[in-house]
Design a protein around this nucleic acid. Structure first.
Length: 876
RNA sequence: GCGGACGUGGCGAAACCGGUAGACGCAAGAGACUUAAAAUCUCUCGGAGCGAUCCGUGCGGGUUCGAUCCCCGCCGUCCGCACCA
């Protein structure tokens, strides 16, 4: 009874066409059923999809198909994060317009995604570089501006003097531009900023409400926002040493309790006082310049020596005016945190201690451990940074660190310098405002106009969109918008005189900060239809890589708040559930050593196994190839497998099934040829078993038997259904895969029996019921195979439209269970008994067991522990 | 340095709330079918022992009738942040 092998190349396009024909995945905003919004992070159209995409979108698709079957109105859209530098780089290298490059890539990748059979609503598709999209982004920008959430300020940026552009921090490698290799300069430029810091506290507090986010991501965001509680303290400058017009220095500290341990003040090289001093003294100027340069290079300088320069300025201690301290410019003080000035307490801070030792400044211990001895406690090479008891601190002596903090805060709050309190409690955040200006062409133009008379004038909404010009050149470095002959020249909307367009474009992270809201009504003239957006949002399940744990997710949280303040949505948190999936990794292969090393693609080799030893051989020549470590798939290491090739040889279902099996979804999965073949074997096996029995399964119309062997089959089916349902709810795809394997193993013999005509109708009916359950529970993972089986079993309609089957609770319970019996914690016997047997019955049954009698050897048990339906332990 | 996660067979892993450690898959070995190969099917598969048994979840302790799971102390791997006052 030979059946044909399942042929995905024939079946998959056929079912995809069918789904399309019946618009199965097009979502109606007015559907009255409960909503479920599942979204995977949209891709950057770099050229082709990679296995990471396959895994990400396979997971999202399982959720979407499962929730659809569970009766939800599911929104599962797809789009393109399409602005960005790679398009411009391609334009410079290959003389292709960024727009053409991008849209061609989108066309290719759309086809690839479609060949995966994803249940996406393609009618809502857009790219962020579509005029229709960035038009509404400009609209949002103007609304934010009106609300005071956008501003301009001078700020230091990484400037590449060869490419004439600003570089993001990630694009500066060892102090050099990643493309040009030129030494990066720090430049003061006027930049546009979003006021994300307006929401620092709220962004921090609300993290506690995101209980469906990974703990890890919440902690990372918490650290990034970096709240600290302290005081700002004003120090009076000794008159004779004060520069003209300056009488005080304000520092920020989280340890006002250690004020009596102060031995110097330190300010950043960019602090106004330092600049003032530099203007008077070339040596100071040189020192500041040195500090700035060091600041540019990467954190590799962790061991950088603490260096300082005495400005000659002296300040009076806030709690003792007769006590004078020196003011240094120091290379370890940051201008953009706190006030750019600190007081140094060497005994309580390692950096301050290093600095004090170098410049011979006093080191006075002011805090000691609770069990310490004030007479002998001393500071050696390590500062004491813990809490403890105050010493050498006059009226603070004997207090705890916390009490001393409070006392100093009260005292400095009451004391005044000039007409103001000398110190104030202050909360500081590490989070900075979001600089969004990019001197780039391929981004969303910032919709403002600079007028000599009227200043910065927003483009009126009626004049939107500010479209990118198509006729630009990339033969010279720099921003093509800046040198376009006409684009920047425009009449001032206010006074009508000649004015200049803003030529900066927005950071591409802006584009991805609200696309999830746009998907809810991409046809709208306004950025959103607030009612519709508020119906669909938050995204119930968002799935993507951990690399976006901070930037994208934090920006989106800010954007949602800003959109709420401007009336575009009515919620604060965009993503209710977040899941960060692991990467797809692969072995690496190489030939040659050291500088001569050359990476070899998996497609060019063959793996051989001899006496348990694996070796790799180059297909072309038979040459031995070195098998290297397992790493993230990357073009540079050539350890990539093209999804197209896999889909062509095994089909999309096999690829989907494989990336979901084996590893838990949040961990990396190792791609291997053998593993894929295993998944493919499963697809073929399931098809073979089902199709061979299909005819007889279809012809049966009896009720399933609920006894004997047939009952066992039904129990397996219903138990598996219940378990897989739970696995899908928790995104435990690897466990669902394992349970489905188990079920297929269990159904193999019964199906063969049916196929051979050896089964009676009631038995056949039980097998049929089980098979239909199997088809439905694999459908989210291998949807094409499921449709093919569904049709072969002559079921009506599509699995994609079928509702999820309900399991019978009674069939998920066994009528007998086997309990392990332990004596003193060691397993000595097994007891088979009814699951609802009471404790006494279990006890006497256990004691009656021969093995137990033998093991006890006449001893009387001290205690018998019976854990219902779990275990029995006899203690002697 | 700070913060977090993880450590289980040859490999990926599973084990619910503290209750039979290793489900499921991969690899390997043996066999059946075949002229042969592929495919498929059956069996074995943590270690020691002929065996009843004993030992095994990174290492050392502890709590418990019972610990992969909880507590304390180490070791190792990975990730994030990094002069944040």
């Amino acid at each position: 009874m030979a059946t044909e092998r399942y042929n995905p190349r024939d079946a998959e396009p056929r079912w995809q066409a069918k789904w399309n024909e019946e618009s199965v995945f097009v979502t109606d905003n007015n559907d009255p059923r409960e909503k479920y919004y599942v979204l995977e992070m949209f891709p950057y159209p770099s050229g082709r999809i990679h296995m990471g995409h396959v895994r990400n979108y396979a997971m999202g698709d399982v959720v979407a198909r499962y929730k659809r079957a569970r009766g939800y109105n599911v929104l599962h859209p797809m789009g393109w994060d399409a602005f960005g530098m790679p398009a411009e780089n391609a334009a410079m290298q290959n003389k292709v317009h960024p727009k053409d490059w991008t849209y061609q890539n989108i066309a290719t990748m759309r086809n690839q995604l479609k060949s995966m059979g994803l249940s996406l609503d393609w009618s809502r598709e857009f790219a962020t570089c579509d005029v229709d999209y960035y038009h509404r982004q400009q609209y949002l920008f103007l609304d934010f501006m009106e609300k005071g959430l956008v501003y301009r300020k001078q700020s230091k940026v990484n400037w590449d003097p060869v490419d004439n552009t600003v570089l993001a921090n990630e694009q500066v490698i060892d102090g050099r531009g990643w493309r040009s290799g030129a030494l990066v300069e720090q430049r003061e430029l006027t930049q546009w900023f979003f006021k994300i810091t307006d929401f620092s506290q709220d962004l921090l507090d609300a993290l506690d409400t995101l209980d469906q986010w990974p703990e890890k991501v919440r902690i990372m965001q918490k650290n990034w926002i970096g709240r600290s509680q302290g005081m700002s303290v004003r120090w009076e400058i000794v008159a004779e040493t004060a520069p003209a017009g300056t009488q005080e220095v304000t520092v920020y500290t989280t340890r006002p309790d250690t004020l009596f341990g102060a031995s110097f003040l330190a300010i950043a090289a960019d602090h106004p006082l330092a600049k003032e001093a530099a203007a008077r003294n070339p040596a100071i100027e040189a020192f500041c310049e040195e500090c700035r340069r060091a600041g540019t290079s990467v954190a590799a300088l962790e061991t950088a020596e603490k260096k300082g320069y005495d400005t000659g300025i002296r300040v009076k201690h806030p709690l003792d005016p007769s006590w004078e301290l020196p003011v240094y410019i120091a290379n370890f003080v940051l201008m953009d945190y706190g006030t750019g000035a600190i007081f140094g307490c060497p005994s309580g801070d390692q950096r301050d201690l290093d600095f004090a030792r170098k410049y011979d400044l006093p080191v006075v211990p002011v805090v000691m451990p609770r069990d310490g001895d004030a007479a002998t406690f001393a500071i050696g090479d390590e500062a004491y940074v813990e809490d403890g008891v105050m010493i050498n601190s006059r009226f603070l002596d004997g207090m705890t660190t916390d009490e001393a903090f409070e006392t100093v805060a009260e005292k400095l709050g009451a004391q005044s310098l000039g007409n103001q309190p000398q110190g104030e409690r202050k909360v500081n955040f590490r989070l900075r405002d979001w600089g969004i200006s990019r001197q780039r062409y391929w981004g969303c133009p910032i919709p403002v106009i600079h007028c000599a008379d009227c200043g910065v004038v927003p483009v009126p909404k009626a004049d939107l969109p500010v479209k990118l010009p198509d006729d630009v050149t990339f033969d010279v470095p720099g921003n093509p918008l800046d040198r376009h002959p006409t684009w920047r020249h425009v009449a001032c909307p206010n006074c009508g005189r000649d004015a200049r367009r803003e030529t900066d474009t927005m950071d591409t992270f802006v584009d991805s900060s609200w696309y999830f809201a746009r998907f809810t009504a991409p046809w709208e003239d306004k950025p959103t239809d607030p009612k519709v957006a508020s119906h669909w949002l938050p995204v119930d399940q968002y799935i993507g890589g951990i690399e976006h744990a901070i930037l994208h997710l934090l920006y989106s949280r800010f954007f949602t708040r800003a959109m709420r303040e401007t009336g575009h949505v009515d919620l604060k948190e965009p993503f209710k559930g977040l899941f960060t999936q692991g990467m797809v990794v692969h072995e690496t292969y190489s030939r040659g050593e050291g500088m001569q090393r050359e990476w070899v693609a998996p497609a060019d080799i063959r793996i051989e196994e001899l006496d348990g030893k694996r070796r790799a051989v180059l297909l072309a020549t038979g040459e031995d190839i070195k098998i290297g470590s397992i790493e993230k798939m990357s073009k540079s290491k050539k350890n990539v497998v093209d999804p197209d090739d896999i889909i062509a040889s095994y089909g999309a279902d096999t690829a989907r099934f494989f990336v979901l099996s084996d590893s838990p979804p949040d961990r990396d999965v190792i791609w291997s040829e053998a593993g894929v073949e295993g998944s493919h074997r499963f697809v073929q096996r399931a098809w073979r078993l089902i199709s061979e029995a299909a005819e007889r399964l279809c012809s049966v119309d009896a009720a399933p038997a609920r006894e004997g062997e047939a009952l066992a089959i039904s129990q397996i089916a219903h138990k598996t259904l219940k378990a897989v349902q739970g696995d899908y709810d928790k995104l435990n795809f690897n466990k669902a895969v394992a349970r489905i394997y188990e079920m297929v193993n269990a159904l193999a013999a019964p199906l063969t029996k049916v196929a051979n005509g050896d089964a009676d109708p009631a038995y056949t009916a039980a097998v049929k019921e089980a098979v239909l359950i199997l088809v439905q529970i694999v459908a989210p993972m291998t949807p094409h195979l499921a449709e093919e089986c569904w049709a072969t079993l002559k079921q009506n309609g599509l699995v994609a439209k079928a509702s999820w089957p309900a399991y019978e609770e009674a069939l998920t319970r066994d009528n007998e269970i086997t309990l392990p019996v332990q004596i003193n914690g060691k397993k000595r016997a097994e007891l088979t008994i009814a699951p609802d047997a009471d404790q006494n019955a279990v006890q006497s049954a256990v004691l009656a067991l021969e093995a137990v009698q033998a093991a006890l050897a006449g001893q009387t048990p001290k205690k018998i522990i019976v854990v219902p339906q779990r275990i029995v332990n006899i203690v002697v």
